[in-house]
Amino acid sequence: MTAMAGEILDNQGRGDASWSWPPIHPEGRKFGVAALGISLIFAFLAWETLAWPMAFLSLGVFAFFRDPERVVPQDPRAIVAPADGLVSLIAQVEPPQELQVDDGTGQRGLPPGQVTRISIFMSVFDVHINRAPIEGSIKRLVYIPGKFMNADLDKASEENERQHILIERQDGLQLGFTQIAGLVARRIVPFVKEGDLVAVGQRVGLIRFGSRVDVYLPAGTDPKVTVGQKIIAGETVLAEVGEQKLLEAISQ
């Protein structure tokens, strides 16, 4: 069930919801139309053995770039998931240097020290639109070229093509996250630039064809998700700022 974009809903029954087909993001329409066009050409030439696979490919492309509406929590303590997918890794790490060091603009970066990193693996079947985990101003947007190894590997955080994003709230809270290309993903597409103001859950970019997103929680904050959990961008609460609590789960 989804709601109209911008509509306020709550847990007391306010708001209306109905099912609808998810729209296709404009970034993907050209690829889907191109595949469909090739399929029609093959069909016109009576090359059915090629026409049908291209037709199914066009449907797959349209499905990959689907962009459903999400009902975004408005609790100021909540850090929401920036990506659909599987929580593949949770580890204590130092934030990337690109999010820490002085970038020459006078804007402060993340402080040094161990924080919790949540890694979200997106398969080709997941929605690939990425969303802002908190509201605030885009302080840094750092693109780094790199390899295209399996995004599920831990070292992909340091070696793959990636883009770091640092958001700062009005109260000074900062949160960094990283879009990481994978084996199939070959382009990270940003929808925002430095200085933009974003709302929690707002679309900030996408990664084409399978990838990963790492989130660096603020110090003193533990995840509210577990390894192996399936999460939804803009809806699943990854953590609550300042909350530290062991959370155990059972796969069944």
Rank of each mutant, 00 (worst) to 15 (best):
A34R: 06
T116D: 09
P22C: 02
M54N: 10
A233E: 05
E94S: 12
M149Q: 08
Q12E: 06
P145T: 06
P68G: 03
A156E: 13
L206T: 11
D84V: 01
K224M: 11
V189W: 04
V200F: 01
R162C: 05
R208K: 15
I180S: 12
S18F: 02
D16K: 13
T178P: 13
I231H: 03
A239P: 02
E235L: 00
G28N: 01
G182D: 09
E135R: 11
Q244D: 01
F44R: 00
A34P: 02
H128Y: 09
V142K: 11
D102S: 14
G176R: 13
N150P: 05
L173F: 10
L57H: 02
S211V: 02
R66W: 04
V237C: 07
R131M: 06
E240I: 00
K230A: 10
V237A: 10
P23T: 08
L173A: 13
S58C: 10
G146A: 08
Q92F: 14
N160C: 08
G109T: 05
V101E: 10
S123A: 07
A156P: 13
P95Q: 13
V71S: 10
L206Q: 03
Q179H: 10
S137L: 12
S119Q: 07
L153Q: 14
M54W: 12
A81E: 01
G60M: 11
P22D: 01
P68A: 04
T49V: 10
G113H: 09
P218G: 05
K155D: 13
N130E: 06
I138M: 11
A81S: 11
V80I: 15
K224F: 00
V87G: 06
K155P: 08
I120K: 01
R77H: 07
V142M: 04
I120N: 03
V198W: 12
A63E: 00
V115P: 08
R117C: 12
T49F: 08
S88T: 11
